[in-house]
Structure formats: structure tokens, C-alpha cells
Design a protein around this nucleic acid. Structure first.
Lengths: 114, 114
DNA sequence: ACAGTTAGTATCATTATGTATACTATACCA
DNA sequence: TGGTATAGTATACATAATGATACTAACTGT
């Protein structure tokens, strides 16, 4: 169909590249489901994540225009993150993954019981 | 909604855990779209992958019952891989990712042109 | 006798990813 | 005067993922 005969494959990797990482899907789900959050709120909602990692993930998501960063000139600092309009377009993928994950849990349970 | 107030997150991670890896989605798409393939066919269809990586990815997918491995008692050896019935249930996710990836390419192009 | 084929394994090197810990600025509160 | 809070940065380190390369068994064809 194309020069290297697999034009579609890289597209999937694009999506994966954005969703992947130990923390990104969790961050995205929180922002999608609960709306705008401050840095410290996110840190509380994602137990176990370090500041460095949270910062890194947020920066990467911002880079891809998936989330929006809003800094308030205050002390102590206040920074809010929210899903961008574009980022909302990821929702079907997250939903598909969530549905599959739920079914997968059952599948594993069944296997375990045999 | 649940004890730790984020019951959904781990489900998404389950799907992600299976799809992630530099090569898994490509392998899965090939098997989904083109059906059963031998090891060497896959190697040819996924340029750049090493035998070690291909073997590893296939083993992991097999572990999760996503693909099926069929060994023929021949010399030189012949081993065929195909998507399992269960593995086919991943298709909606792959499709959602592919669609998003396609739109994402446009999005990036637009940005680049500004 | 010797090269080519297939589906791997073994070993080592290099990156990528993640963790732990300490540190900063500045305002507010006691 | 000292402690608390926020949103980070800096540094060092540990672990996991990926890559490069060489090797194997056993049969076929030359």
C-alpha cells in the first residue's frame, strides 16, 4: 500500500508514545474525570510518584499539547493543569483500554481458577 | 467510588502493559491484519527488530494469551504465530490508537506550518 | 566438504526510565 | 525568629529496556 508496506503502524506508536509511561494514563484519567488540578493535588492523587517524575510527565504532556499549564503569580506558587481540547480526543483510547482492562481482569480470574 | 478512589486506573494500565514495548503494537497489527506468520516473516515485516527482541515480545504476548505459537517438528524449524481469539479483543484499542495517531499527524503538521 | 536455512539462545554494552534525597524562593502565621 | 507551604530544580544512583554480535542444531542442496 505504501513504500515500506506498513503505513499504519507508526500512527499507533504515536498514540502509544503519548500514553506510555508509568504515570501518564493515571494523570490523564484524573484530569479527564475530575478536571483542573494543581500540582500538589495531582501529587496527592497519584501516590508514590516523585516530584521529578510528576514534573517530567506533565512537561511531556504539555509539549504534546495534551494538557495546559497555568501559572499564577503568587507565593507560594500555584500552577494548574488541565486537559486541553486536543487532549480530550484521547478519551476514546482511554475508554477502550479501560473496557478491555476490565474484561482482562475477568479473563485472568477465570484462568486462575482452572 | 472505591476504596482508594481510583478503581479505573489499574485497568487501563493492564491494557497498556500488554500493548507497550517498542514492537508489540506493530507485531499485533501485522498479525491482526494479515493473519498467521512465521517467525522469519515477522522479522522481515518489522525492519530493525533484532531476533532477541522479536522473541521476547512474542513470548510476552504468548504469556498473556494474546497470540498463539505453533511449532512444526521440521528442520529447518518452522514456527507460526497468530492472534488468539482473546487477542482479537484488543482490536478496538488498536483501531482507536490508529485513528488518533492519524489525526495527531495532521495536528503536528498544522503546528509545524504556523 | 561446505554454505545456506530457521528459530532461536548467550553475552555484553548502551540507553531509558525511575527513585531518593536534598535544596531553593518567598510569603504567611505563631 | 522560626516553621509551614508550593512548585519546582539538582544530583546521584538503581533498575529495566533495548541493542549488537556471535553462536547453535540439523537438514538441504552443490
Amino acid at each position: 500500500m505504501d513504500m515500506d508496506m506498513q503505513p499504519e503502524l507508526c500512527k499507533v506508536d504515536d498514540a502509544l508514545g503519548i500514553l506510555v509511561g508509568k504515570w501518564k494514563p493515571i494523570i490523564l484519567l484524573i484530569l479527564l474525570q475530575e478536571g483542573t488540578k494543581r500540582f500538589s493535588d495531582l501529587k496527592r492523587r497519584v501516590p508514590g510518584i516523585t516530584q521529578k517524575m510528576l514534573t517530567k510527565q506533565l512537561r511531556e504532556l504539555e509539549e504534546e499539547d495534551i494538557i495546559t499549564r497555568n501559572v499564577y503569580a503568587q507565593v507560594p506558587p500555584k500552577v494548574e493543569y488541565s486537559i486541553s481540547e486536543y487532549g480530550e480526543s484521547l478519551e476514546p483510547i482511554l475508554v477502550a483500554m479501560h473496557e478491555w482492562g476490565t474484561a482482562h481482569t475477568l479473563h485472568k480470574t477465570k484462568k486462575g481458577q482452572l
